[in-house]
């Protein structure tokens, strides 16, 4: 089976986020593969090993993403496509359109992605992609098996497990618990630099820049205020409710 993995390079989860002129500062930040995408890569490699298929990694991002791509190749992916054209850097809509244009021309049985990226946390891109490609999707899966051209996925449903069957080709997004991602082996690392990586532009995949321009405008970016000490309300219930409403109206101004 041939598997395509959508991967995003994100900030290290331990990175300290700072702003410069209202923009997130990327200086000196450690970059990693989005942790949920690591589960997707691992699952893809397991499918490859069980079925003698191939694994292709697709990513959107600037030159620095090559490092994450090489790590995925070192883990065992076969080849990769990097869309490093700034015209492809937009919002979830843009990303899904770009990924769809890259993937549409390829043959695949399975598309795997993380269930969300830890930076923007939108959980939208992969699901939009499935819609654009007109393939079924199952999100936040914790187990994936195959029975011929049918996939059986278990998904995390708020503490319960839902078992879903879909016909291939299909898209799945990975949840923690799906597997234990491997470390790239030394030989894998050494081979990674020789594996094919294709760099493509928006025009090169047949998209018009203005047709995929982002639909969301970011009006402000800010760091959440430091969480202060909590306050426990006292008194009888009506008193506590009155006090809570007053706090919500006057102190935190949420209502």
């Amino acid at each position: 089976m041939n598997v395509i993995v959508c991967m995003k390079q994100t900030f290290d989860t331990e990175a300290k986020i700072t702003l410069t002129d209202g923009k997130i500062n990327e200086e000196g930040v450690q970059w990693i593969i989005n942790p949920y995408d690591e589960y997707a890569i691992e699952e893809a490699l397991k499918i490859k090993e069980a079925t003698e298929g191939t694994v292709t990694v697709v990513t959107i991002g600037p030159a620095r993403v090559e490092e994450a791509v090489r790590t995925a190749l070192a883990m065992g992916a076969d080849d990769a496509v990097i869309v490093d054209d700034p015209a492809a850097f937009g919002d979830e809509f843009t990303a899904a359109e770009v990924l769809a244009a890259v993937i549409r021309t390829r043959t695949y049985d399975v598309i795997l992605a993380g269930n969300q990226a830890v930076d923007d946390g939108s959980s939208q891109v992969a699901v939009r992609l499935a819609q654009l490609l007109d393939v079924p999707h199952v999100s936040t899966i914790t187990k994936l098996t195959f029975d011929g051209a049918v996939a059986v996925a278990e998904r995390d449903a708020e503490g319960d497990t839902e078992v879903v069957e879909v016909k291939l080709p299909a898209l799945f997004t990975a949840q923690q618990g799906l597997n234990e991602p491997r470390y790239p082996s030394l030989l894998g690392i050494r081979k990674a630099s020789k594996k094919p990586v294709e760099h493509v532009t928006v025009a090169g995949i047949g998209l018009a820049e203005n047709a995929i321009a982002k639909r969301v405008a970011v009006t402000e970016t800010f760091i959440p205020a430091q969480k202060g000490a909590g306050r426990i309300l006292t008194g009888d219930t009506p008193e506590r409710v009155r006090e809570l409403v007053r706090e919500l109206r006057q102190t935190s101004k949420v209502i």
Binding site: R70, I189, R190, A192
Partner: peptide, 15 residues
Amino acid sequence: SNEQSMIRDMVREFA
């Protein structure tokens, strides 16, 4: 080199 830093990162994570 890329390869050297990948090896260092992999060993760091493993260790």
